[in-house]
């Protein structure tokens, strides 16, 4: 489907890590990870539970400080940038476990995001209602993930799978250049997971996407490149056919009964 995007420009990764390390006490969760995400990439990261995939996302976004190594955005070391500053530069993530404003409505969740992205969230005096275009943009995004009938419901009132769509809508609302998707369809009933996968497939081709995913059908359909993470280290990285044929990967996966 997306394989006809042409060869990626391998010279300029948008997002890159060099020797990235993270320890939690004695536990090593990221071991010397070298990773590159090209402009427009469709890159899957796979690996057994506890391999350190979510931690890797947290290191990229700045939610966690690394123990060693560096993260580069557009070739610049972003160690000094806080999480919110990275978001402003287009580095956006979704959470494996829904991380939403549970007491607010679906529309309010998206509104807060849009207001922040448009830079109007610091406004002290004019009411929300004085900028209908911001609310209209939030409405448009709600429709994009087909939650218009639930727009007035609070997150609490939605089943988990529908909440998942809000995670995606928030990410889209931020107009990312680099999008890190942490198991976006985890916990979504099969009947609804296509909404999420369609939304992802429909993203502009120039967005660099890294997706963490357990469903191998999705991975092999979507990804042009796959990185396998095991025990915090990169076991293999390459195009899907290469990864599928890799003996070590097969050993890990077949051994763990994934697929």
């Amino acid at each position: 489907m997306t394989a006809d995007l042409g060869p990626a420009v391998h010279e300029n990764p948008v997002l890159e890590t060099k020797g990235l390390c993270k320890n939690f006490g004695a536990l090593v969760v990221a071991r010397d990870i070298d990773f590159a995400l090209e402009a427009g990439a469709r890159h899957a990261v796979i690996g057994p539970n506890g391999a350190g995939k979510t931690t890797f996302v947290n290191l990229l976004t700045g939610a966690l400080p690394p123990t060693g190594g560096s993260v580069l955005l557009d070739g610049l070391d972003i160690a000094g940038l806080a999480e919110h500053e990275r978001v402003k530069r287009g580095l956006v993530r979704t959470f494996q476990i829904n991380t939403l404003f549970n007491g607010l409505t679906v529309l309010e969740n998206i509104y807060l995001t849009v207001a922040e992205r448009m830079g109007v969230a610091t406004g002290l005096f004019r009411p929300v209602g004085s900028r209908p275009e911001v609310v209209a943009e939030a409405e448009r995004l709600v429709e994009m993930v087909q939650l218009q009938d639930d727009a007035g419901r609070t997150i609490d009132e939605l089943p988990y799978g529908r909440q998942r769509l809000v995670e995606i809508a928030i990410a889209l609302a931020l107009e990312p250049r680099v999008l890190l998707l942490d198991e976006p369809s985890a916990g979504v009933p099969g009947a609804e997971s296509h909404i999420i996968l369609d939304a992802i497939a429909a993203l502009p081709a120039d967005i660099a996407i890294m997706i963490i995913e357990h469903d191998m059908d999705v991975v092999f359909r979507f990804a042009e490149r796959i990185t396998v993470l095991v025990s915090g280290a990169v076991l293999a990285s390459g195009p899907p056919d290469e990864i599928a044929a890799d003996e070590r990967v097969r050993a890990v996966y077949l051994g763990h009964g994934h697929g």
Partner: peptide, 12 residues
Amino acid sequence: ENVRRMHAIGTP
């Protein structure tokens, strides 16, 4: 409601 989410939508 959710500080972690606020950071992740780019709020200082």
